[in-house]
Every structure is written in structure tokens, then in C-alpha cells.
Amino acid sequence: MKKNTTKTLTSFLLFVFLFCTSFSVQAQVSSENNTKSFFWDKVQFGGAFGLGIGNNYTNITVAPSAIYNFNRYFAAGLGIQYSYVKQKNFYESNLYGGSALALFHPIEQIQISAELEQLRVNTEYNSFYGGYRHDFWNTALFLGAGFRTNNVTIGVRYNVLHKDDDGVYADAFMPFIRVYF
């Protein structure tokens, strides 16, 4: 593993640990009626599910996440992701990892976002194409904006770390739909 990749992964895991630790400390504070903690009143769960099926092609993605609303303007959260991608007679790939997400709502209908995503990619190519494996880490930093109504946000995000011939995503721009309950 490259030195920069190790440093990035270590930094990401440290952030996740500190983020989760702060949540567990705050979760101990309960509301006056003791029926539900103050912490859980500000947590929302959501995420994404993707399914793409085509001409000998399959792409399945499951990406649950949770956010904590600090106030009506700021929220932050964590997510995990797993994707299975297969092009028949060409390659099969498994992608898994996590992300940290920050949301800003300058007004109720607008959402500005930043998301750091770290994925491990394991791809195995068919013997006709060399029969080799390509395993690597893919880091993405998405900056996005969207229109928000109730629990749904529709928008577009841009991967500032995108490289044309290196990585998971074919394009730096990516539309999104976020739903949190």
C-alpha cells in the first residue's frame, strides 16, 4: 500500500472514531421525560440504493447513512457503501468503504454538501482480457448543491479529486437524490 494511501486511510479512520465517540458521549444525555434521548431526536437515517441492469451488465449499490442535525443550518454524518458491478465475460468488481458527510442549509430549500468517500475496489478481469486482478483505494471529495423539500434533496455534486483515467467514477459531475427520515 502506498504511503499516501495509508496516511489517508489512517486519517479517515481517526475521523470516524472521533466522530462516533462524540456521538456516544452526547447520547448519554436524556430529555426531561426520559422516554427518548435528546441525541436521537436530532438523528436522521437514510442513504441510497442503486440498481442498474443492462445488456450483460449488473450494478447493485447499497449505501446507508445517518446524519446528526446540530441546528437548522448544519448537519454531519457517516455512511457505508457496498457495490457489486459485473460486465459479463469482461470483469467483476466489489467496492466497499465509508464516507463522512457535512450539510449546510443557508435557507430551508437549499442544501450545500461536502462528502469525503474512501472505497476499496477489487476488480477481477476475465482470462480473455488477461485474467488479472486490480485492487486499489479510491478517494473522492464531493462538493454539491441541491434543492430540498421536506426529507428529500435533489442536486448535483462534483468530485474535486476526479482523474479521467484513474478511479471509480467515469465523470466528475454526478446527480444525487438524498432521503433522510
Rank of each mutant, 00 (worst) to 15 (best):
E92P: 10
A63W: 00
S83Q: 12
I80E: 01
C20P: 00
V25K: 10
K86L: 11
A114L: 11
K86E: 14
D41N: 15
S65Q: 13
S37C: 02
S83T: 15
D164F: 08
L143F: 10
S99N: 07
N138E: 10
G98P: 02
N59D: 15
F70Y: 13
G131R: 10
Q28T: 14
F38T: 15
N94T: 04
S11F: 08
I107T: 09
S11Q: 08
A172Q: 09
A66V: 12
D135P: 05
V29A: 09
F23S: 08
F49H: 05
F90R: 14
L14E: 04
R120Q: 13
V121C: 02
T35S: 14
S24C: 11
A63M: 00
Y125K: 05
F128P: 00
S83Y: 03
D164C: 00
V29N: 05
L14H: 05
D41L: 15
F45P: 06
G146M: 08
L119V: 10
L143W: 01
G155Q: 06
V16M: 08
S65H: 00
F23G: 09
N56H: 12
A114S: 15
N94Q: 07
Q118H: 03
Q87I: 01
F19A: 06
P175Y: 06
K88M: 13
K2P: 09
F19L: 08
T21A: 15
N150I: 09
A172D: 00
D166Q: 11
I60Q: 02
T5P: 02
V179D: 05
F142Q: 04
W137C: 04
L116G: 01
G46H: 02
F39M: 09
N71D: 15
T21F: 15
T10R: 10
K88P: 02
A75Y: 02
S24Y: 11
A172C: 00
V156P: 05
E117P: 03
K163T: 13
N150W: 11
N59Q: 08
F15K: 01
T61D: 07
F39W: 11
N126G: 00
